[in-house]
Simulated assay, not measured.
Amino acid sequence: MQRIPGITKMMYMFAETLTASITQKALANVPVGVFADTFTVSHTGDAICELESQFDNNDMLEKVKLTFSTTDTLPTHRHLAFVINTANGKQYLIGAAEPPYPVVKVDSSTGRVNGDSAVTKYTISYENKMALVPCTA
């Protein structure tokens, strides 16, 4: 399992607004640009992105898991995709315009008595032949 270092910024977009066949383009080493409208997510604490590769059904499969806490509310009633920026200046796309889509798990909690804000923890899980696509957004 590989951890992506230092997430400095996260954005989401609606998956259907992405360019088609992003996964195939990335597998063919074609540069991927994100031209969809993006929405910044302000996260509290550390955001963690983990990547795992495994051999499945005579093919490689990547699994990515992005976990973060935020006071923002994401529109989870729609298919979302995410772009993360790392401390080393790289950008990665999680998701595509076509299925499979990232699965968004939401855990809500109340704030502490001392005045801390209530935060929502999101866990984004995504599996594809290439689940963490280098991109430019």
Rank of each mutant, 00 (worst) to 15 (best):
R3C: 00
R3P: 03
I4K: 01
I4W: 00
I7A: 04
I7M: 05
T8N: 03
M10G: 05
M11V: 10
Y12C: 04
F14L: 12
E16W: 01
E16S: 06
T19A: 09
A20G: 04
S21W: 09
I22Q: 09
I22V: 15
T23Y: 00
T23C: 07
Q24W: 04
K25G: 02
A26V: 01
A26H: 04
A28L: 12
N29Q: 14
N29T: 04
V30P: 06
V30G: 03
V30C: 07
V30N: 11
P31T: 01
P31Y: 01
V32C: 11
G33Y: 06
F35L: 12
A36E: 04
A36H: 04
A36N: 05
T38H: 00
F39A: 10
T40W: 02
T40S: 11
S42C: 07
H43D: 01
G45L: 09
I48K: 10
E50T: 14
L51R: 11
L51E: 06
E52L: 12
E52C: 07
E52A: 14
E52T: 15
Q54R: 15
D56G: 00
D59E: 13
M60T: 14
L61K: 12
L61Q: 13
L61Y: 00
E62A: 09
K63E: 12
V64H: 01
L66T: 03
S69L: 07
S69R: 14
T70W: 06
T70C: 08
D72M: 11
D72K: 08
T73E: 14
L74Q: 08
H77A: 13
H77Y: 12
R78Q: 12
R78W: 07
R78M: 13
N88V: 01
N88M: 04
G89L: 05
K90W: 02
K90D: 12
Q91I: 02
Q91N: 08
Y92M: 08
Y92H: 11
I94C: 09
I94N: 05
A96D: 15
A96C: 06
A97Y: 01
A97K: 15
P99V: 05
Y101P: 07
P102K: 03
V104P: 06
V106M: 08
S108R: 14
S109D: 11
T110E: 10
G111M: 09
V113S: 13
D116N: 14
A118F: 03
K121W: 00
I124V: 15
I124H: 02
S125T: 15
S125Q: 10
S125K: 13
Y126W: 05
E127L: 11
K129V: 01
K129R: 15
M130D: 03
M130W: 00
V133Y: 00
V133N: 03
P134R: 04
C135H: 03
C135T: 10
T136L: 08
T136D: 13
